[in-house]
């Protein structure tokens, strides 16, 4: 044992278990998926090298662009729907009135439910003949209760249920961030006679800038992975109206057992995800924060 400062610092060995473990189940699979994309494998036996044939099949896949398109649409709809809603409610719920505190407890209820629980609940609610959709669909202009079965509406219905699940979480972020805004800013504004709306736009919104960015990043990156709920609620249907890219990959791989082609789609998905992350990072200046932190 030595008393020198350097020796008292934890060696790389402290990080080794985490690194090895993550390498085995996080990094190795990324390389393996690239390898599998050049093979034919139906889950039986061993993968057989087939070169570029899976990649060539990409050009023939009529559902590929549908999948990418639906993924992007879901992303945009989720962002446009969830952000203003969560922002408004979060700011409102940050108020100190007792009623708001009680009500915000209710807002957080969906956080207690798993995706599977939410999905089976909404499938029951939206049953066109025996659910709420049958009785109340007419008030929403859908007298036959055809929500999940309508190629035009299904994706928006899914986006709604996703919002139902995740708005509480984003509300939570905005609520706690709003509570951090120094009161003095508002007191000064009140002295100047600024209205509530004015205060919202000139104080609250700018002060929440970082939270808005963070919440948006989560929605954007997260929507690439909304998959379980769609699998449970529509299985990508009707037709392929809700078949987002991850689901397309799952169906090819684990329903059609074309694991090789599914791996091609997985590579596309990883590439898209990384590209989106890079764009978001550039736009929000997140990389500067990272380098700050690395300097710490």
């Amino acid at each position: 044992m030595t008393t020198s400062k350097a020796a008292a610092r934890p060696g790389i060995i402290w990080a080794a278990p985490a690194v090895l473990f993550f390498a085995a189940f996080g990094i190795l699979p990324v390389f393996a998926v690239v390898y599998l994309s050049f093979t034919k494998w139906n889950g039986l036996g061993d993968p057989v090298w087939t070169g570029l044939s899976n990649w060539a099949a990409l050009a023939d896949d009529s559902e590929l662009f549908n999948g990418i398109g639906k993924t992007l649409l879901l992303t945009v709809v989720s962002w446009v729907g969830q952000t203003p809603l969560a922002l408004l409610i979060g700011v409102w719920a940050a108020g100190t009135q007792r009623s708001r505190a009680v009500l915000s407890t209710l807002f957080f209820l969906p956080l207690l439910l798993s995706t599977a629980a939410i999905s089976v609940t909404f499938v029951s609610l939206l049953d066109p003949n025996f659910g709420l959709a049958a009785d109340y669909g007419k008030y929403l202009g859908v007298p036959d209760g055809n929500f999940l079965g309508s190629p035009e509406k299904a994706l928006y219905v899914i986006a709604f249920v996703i919002a139902w699940q995740f708005v509480p979480f984003h509300t939570l972020l905005y609520q706690s961030a709003t509570r951090q805004i120094p009161v003095s800013l508002y007191e000064a504004a009140q002295l100047d006679g600024a209205t509530g709306v004015r205060q919202f736009f000139s104080i609250t919104l700018p002060q929440l800038r970082n939270t808005i960015i963070a919440s948006s990043v989560l929605i954007l990156v997260g929507s690439l992975t909304y998959f379980e709920m769609i699998l449970l609620m529509t299985n990508g249907g009707p037709g392929t109206a809700t078949r987002v890219l991850p689901l397309h990959m799952y169906i090819k791989g684990f329903v059609g057992f074309d694991m090789g082609y599914a791996s091609v789609l997985a590579v596309v998905l990883v590439t898209l995800g990384t590209a989106l992350s890079v764009v978001v990072v550039r736009l929000t200046g997140y990389h500067r924060m990272t380098s700050d932190r690395e300097g710490a």
Binding site: S124, D127, P128, F130, D144, G149, S150, P151
Partner: peptide, 14 residues
């Protein structure tokens, strides 16, 4: 098949 058949599920006996 009516208008809303695409919303009807067999597994939940719809």
């Amino acid at each position: 098949f009516g208008t809303n058949f695409a919303s009807v599920n067999y597994d939940n006996q719809g």
